[in-house]
């Protein structure tokens, strides 16, 4: 596995953020996976010495700015998810692909739940079940990455 530099990380994060900025509307907006979070999780799990809670928080602030919502909600949700991801990062070597996907799904759902709680505190209505669709599409995207042989742990299956 090629060693990763900070440049790779920042470049991919900027690309993910640009994907987030694309003019999504209607069904696409409902399905849109959280690109920034997915790329963040990838780097958090692969290179935790370069990408940490602080990186997640900064990206969260950027997403907050772009979304125009309450300042700091995405930052808090991303930082919290980054913390959980890092806590179990070392065990990831033992997981197979499907366990890994389940782990990512849990992390994505956890981020959305944190956001939901924060928004309910701020006085939003309870959204429908479609609110959690981005997590599902996010895991699908993650599986695509797995099948394209970019391993998080760098260890090939036997």
């Amino acid at each position: 596995m090629r060693p990763v530099g900070l440049k790779d990380i920042y470049f991919s994060l900027i690309v993910a953020f640009t994907l987030y900025l694309l003019p999504w509307a209607g069904f696409g907006l409902m399905l849109r996976p959280d690109f920034v979070l997915l790329v963040l999780l990838y780097w958090l799990l692969r290179a935790p010495q370069l990408c940490n809670v602080g990186t997640a928080w900064t990206l969260g602030i950027l997403v907050d700015l772009a979304s125009g919502g309450l300042f700091g909600q995405y930052a808090l949700a991303y930082a919290f998810t980054a913390f959980v991801a890092l806590t179990y990062q070392r065990r990831l070597v033992l997981f197979n692909e499907w366990q890994q996907a389940g782990y990512i799904l849990l992390l994505l759902l956890q981020t959305q739940l944190t956001l939901l709680i924060l928004k309910l505190f701020a006085g939003s209505d309870l959204p429908g079940w479609s609110y959690f669709l981005p997590s599902a599409s996010g895991v699908l995207l993650w599986q695509l990455v797995v099948y394209s042989r970019v391993r998080v742990t760098g260890i090939k299956d036997s």
Binding site: V53, L70, G72, A75, A79, F80, L118, A122
Partner: peptide, 13 residues
Amino acid sequence: RLSFFAAISIALM
């Protein structure tokens, strides 16, 4: 780190 950043974001919110 989490406590530090969480405190900042709650203050910001």
